[in-house]
Design a protein around this nucleic acid. Sequence first.
DNA 1: CCAAAAGTGTTATGTCTACACCCATGA
DNA 2: TCATGGGTGTAGACATAACACTTTTGG
Lengths: 251, 251
Amino acid sequence: MTTKSDGAGAPIGYDPSQFPAFAVTVDIVILTMSDGALHMLLVRRGEAPFKGMWAIPGGFKRPNETLHEAARRELAEETGVDVPTLLTQFGAYGDPGRDPRINVVTVAYLAVLRDVGTIVAGTDAADALLVPVGDVRSEKLDLAFDHLQIVRDAVDRARVELEVTGIATAFVGPTFTLAELRAVYEATWGVELDAANFRRSVVAEDGWVIPTGRRTQPGPAGGRPAELYRAGRAWKHGGPIHRLPRTTERN
Amino acid sequence: MTTKSDGAGAPIGYDPSQFPAFAVTVDIVILTMSDGALHMLLVRRGEAPFKGMWAIPGGFKRPNETLHEAARRELAEETGVDVPTLLTQFGAYGDPGRDPRINVVTVAYLAVLRDVGTIVAGTDAADALLVPVGDVRSEKLDLAFDHLQIVRDAVDRARVELEVTGIATAFVGPTFTLAELRAVYEATWGVELDAANFRRSVVAEDGWVIPTGRRTQPGPAGGRPAELYRAGRAWKHGGPIHRLPRTTERN
DNA sequence: CCAAAAGTGTTATGTCTACACCCATGA
DNA sequence: TCATGGGTGTAGACATAACACTTTTGG
């Protein structure tokens, strides 16, 4: 950054009284799969402003931590889950008045977790909520601050990440069936993918999925038991599945 | 964001004295094409810290403007160019100590311009510099703060944007030949693209390029005159050119 | 034996790459 | 008429989508 003279008149230097002070927060959009649909975690605000409204979890950045550390800390405080990876910064928001009391710039992160349902079940139900992302995006449920915009951007980013990185495996357990993995893509993109072609794409490129040799129990309606896979290391470098198929736009 | 009790002890509320104050700046990586290579604009710092070093342009965000407005204002102050679009936010940086004096979080933007060479020529040469991006990435030239990291991220982002959006046309003039457009891809990705196939990909999808009917003068060595095109509106929705070809990694 | 879900085979269609070839110009 | 760069044609390699078919389970 430069410290040149400012267009409005007075030169801005390094005297701490010369530049405007902001609070910096980190907000986290926590995505997870539940009932085959994309869900997200909300918390109820305990203080003004927007007291009692639902919001995405977050908190103030401390001077002695990085933004990423702040996000990781907030995620751990909120869910008890400490996942160093899969925390992706996707935007910064600083519109004047986005917080009615003070100047706040927030840096937004996307986290992908599994089993958030069980986490929420262990919490006071009045304070945490797992909702379908569609309910937020359609404004069926409204959020504090500019959190609606943040959620929209988060989902857009998640859709891209799904195509480009390996976040798909973060939605599922340490072992998973290809049907479960496919459901992640279908729910996030709002499309239907051909199971046969999906399997081929994923299995073909090597390093993506590693067969464990084990199988699932079929559901009560029967069906052939599915093979269980675990994620290979190649999920770091970009995924094998790409979209375009007929869209059904479910969220 | 929430205002729950903070892990380190004292609860954090909305009392302005209770949360840490940060300066918020906006930094802009300005990319342009020059001599067929990707270049960027640097400015010399006039004040401590890092006085006299090269840095990317930027400045403090004001409380009454959005981050995007701040970026646009800084870009205009620095170059005189006021381009509302093609200013893409790509990251926020807030490591403790990144500014040795105060706590600064910076929000970084990517701008793509043409004719920056002429802009720089009109400036005091000691204060502004147009350098090949490769010289920065290879640390042949070193920058103030964590600006090296910011530049690396900016170029990564530009490479993705090139594939996904229409920023390619922002590098070239209002009318351009397909060879000029191809040079943008080649320089940014560090690859060579087959001219014949490039043409087909671009011309095929409609809405990308619109023939003007006019032609260029061939160079001094002769050659068939190239058709001039202008950008279609479809460049907003994702580009027709994708990478993979043999890489030569030039920056 | 039937339904259900997993997994395999096959084929038509489309896209991408490489490269041969033709066109328009300056010297 | 030759060198240079623009522009077109085309055949093979490869990827994708659609869907019929086989396998393995529960009822």
